[in-house]
C-alpha cells in the first residue's frame, strides 16, 4: 500500500497573531490543509490518505474533510510522536507484516506537485527512504555557539529540506525502535533517523514554490502564488 500521512500536528506558534493552527487558515477560500490533502487524494498511486492532527482539533479537521476520503487520526506531542502514530496507524489498518510506502508531508505545504509525489514513491521503493530537497541558494553558515561562525560549508553541497519524506515502513519501524530516548527527544527530521544509522536516503528534487506556510509572510506569498490579492486574503 502507498499511504500518505499529512502531518497537521503543529499548533502554529510561529504564525503570530492568529490563534488558529496555521494549517486551518484559509487560502483562496479554503483551509490550507484541504488544499494539501487534495493533492494526495487525486494522485493515482496514493491509495490512502491519513491526516494526523492534535486531539483538540480532530473534530474541526473532520468537519473540513467531511466530503473527502481522507481519514483523520490523532497526532502526537512531537513530530516524532506524530510519525509513530502514522506508522502504527498504517500497520494496524493495512497489516504490520507488509512493507508499505509511507509518504509523510507537512499539512502547510499545499503547493506540493504531482511530480514530487510520484518521485517520492519511486525513490522510497528503490532506496527505502527519500527526502525532498532543493539546492541551497543562500550560503549556509554554521555556528555551534550562536555567536561566532564555526564553519561555512561549500554551498553546492548544501540543500534545503522540504517535504514529502517517504519511507518503507518496515525499515522505518526497525530504525525508530532503536532510537534512544535522548535521540527521540532531539530528532526533528525523520530522514535523520536513517542518516544517523548509515542507511541510504535518496534526494527528490523539490520546487521553490513548494513553500511551508509558517509565518504571516509565507501566507502572503502563498496568496500571491495563487494570484490572490493578499489584502483580501484576510487570514491574519
Amino acid at each position: 500500500m502507498i499511504i500518505a500521512a499529512i502531518m497537521a500536528g503543529g499548533i502554529g506558534s510561529r504564525m503570530g497573531s492568529s490563534a488558529m493552527p496555521k494549517q486551518y487558515l484559509p487560502l483562496g477560500g479554503k483551509p490550507i490543509l484541504l488544499h494539501t490533502v487534495e493533492k494526495f487524494l487525486v494522485h493515482p498511486q496514493v491509495e490512502h490518505v491519513a491526516v494526523l492532527t492534535p486531539r483538540s482539533w480532530i473534530s474541526h479537521t473532520k468537519d473540513i474533510l467531511k466530503n473527502s476520503a481522507a481519514q483523520v487520526i490523532e497526532g502526537g506531542e512531537t513530530r516524532n510522536d506524530t510519525l509513530w502514530n502514522a506508522l502504527r496507524y498504517t500497520e494496524e489498518a493495512f497489516g504490520g507484516e507488509d512493507d508499505h510506502i509511507l509518504i509523510t508531508h507537512d499539512a502547510v505545504r499545499p503547493f506540493v506537485t504531482h511530480r514530487i509525489i510520484s518521485e517520492n514513491i519511486e525513490s522510497a521503493q528503490k532506496y527505502g527512504a527519500c527526502d525532498t530537497v532543493i539546492p541551497a541558494t543562500d550560503t549556509i553558515v554554521e555556528s555551534r555557539a550562536g555567536t561566532l561562525i564555526s564553519g561555512i560549508p561549500e554551498r553546492k553541497t548544501m540543500f534545503q529540506g522540504q517535504t514529502p519524506q517517504s519511507f518503507r515502513t518496515r525499515k522505518l519501524r526497525a530504525l525508530m525502535e532503536r532510537l534512544s530516548e535522548e535521540e527521540s527527544a532531539i530528532l526533528t527530521d525523520a530522514c535523520k533517523i536513517f542518516v544517523m544509522r548509515g542507511e541510504p536516503v535518496a534526494m527528490v528534487t523539490g520546487e521553490t514554490h513548494n513553500i511551508k506556510i509558517t509565518y504571516p509572510y509565507d501566507l502572503k506569498v502563498a496568496q500571491a502564488l495563487l494570484g490572490l490579492d493578499p489584502a483580501e486574503g484576510g487570514a491574519l
Partner: peptide, 21 residues
C-alpha cells in the same frame, strides 16, 4: 485543488503560476 500552470510570459520565457481548480 491547487494546479500548477507553466505559462509563456514572453518569447522564450516561462513562469510557474498556481491556480485553484
Amino acid at each position: 485543488m491547487i494546479d500548477v500552470v507553466y505559462r509563456l510570459t514572453a518569447p522564450g520565457m516561462f513562469e510557474v503560476a498556481c491556480q485553484e481548480l
